[in-house]
Design a binder for these strands. Sequence first.
DNA 1: TACTTGCTTCGAGTGCACTCCAACGTTTTA
DNA 2: TAAAACGTTGGAGTGCACTCGAAGCAAGTA
Lengths: 139, 139
Amino acid sequence: MSVIESVESTTPPAGKDRYTISEVAALTGLTAHTLRWYERIGLMPHVDRSHTGQRRFSERDLGWLAFVGKLRLTGMPVADMVRYAELVREGDHTRDARRELLEATRRDVLTRITELQDTLAVLDIKISHYGTACGGTPS
Amino acid sequence: MSVIESVESTTPPAGKDRYTISEVAALTGLTAHTLRWYERIGLMPHVDRSHTGQRRFSERDLGWLAFVGKLRLTGMPVADMVRYAELVREGDHTRDARRELLEATRRDVLTRITELQDTLAVLDIKISHYGTACGGTPS
DNA sequence: TACTTGCTTCGAGTGCACTCCAACGTTTTA
DNA sequence: TAAAACGTTGGAGTGCACTCGAAGCAAGTA
């Protein structure tokens, strides 16, 4: 618990802390279906429930979803995110493993950025070929 | 043909020009299955055949595959790449449409790079929360 | 009270990008 | 020449990440 608070929360609990699933859907851009699916596969920590069993998301849940959204942008497979979520749940002794995982992800992201910059260069060359009213022998 | 030469070829025709499918697979990292599939869906221009009907890839085909590989890295859907390939086949009067498409792709790539850089920043913050070597427990 | 909206679950369906199979023909190597 | 390796096709299968449907319970509004 303390680990989650100290490391996993980015946004401090401020504002209301009992969001319904449709509110969270609106805030995150995910569908309610996807949010339930995330919980089912273990990608969400267990979400609090109302007295009638309906989900009530906390600010921390929102923070986690925002982080997951970032990881998703990197192309990380959902299974790997689930693995990370499991490590968080397992507690303090997985700190090193988690840092390792994040650092590996960081390296992947750097690689992806480099690849995209290469691609950008290729696109620029192509575009410039299209741009110039070509008369010479292009390569 | 001339359009393809003037705009679509990056590598000048040098070296042998009759690669078998397994050679191309080795060179590109794609499987033979994928190469045939690319042709079937119209992502490859029609590949030359031997007198018995086997594929013989040219240097230009390799250049096209390299470009497709770059596009693939951007996350562009295969259907969009097929669309671009169709424009190329349709000839000179689609130049503008093609440049448009490449420029849109370029914008997408820039957006993706920005997203990844944001993600990188988040990862760095998380990693720094996990602390540097002093807190870690080595095996 | 009746209606509308939103929530629950489980399980099935979708779209994408491959990936593989079966059956058979061709080319290379020993 | 015989075997091994490689090629062909159409169509079916796989894995991922959702995405949706159906049946039913609960809460708010006219």
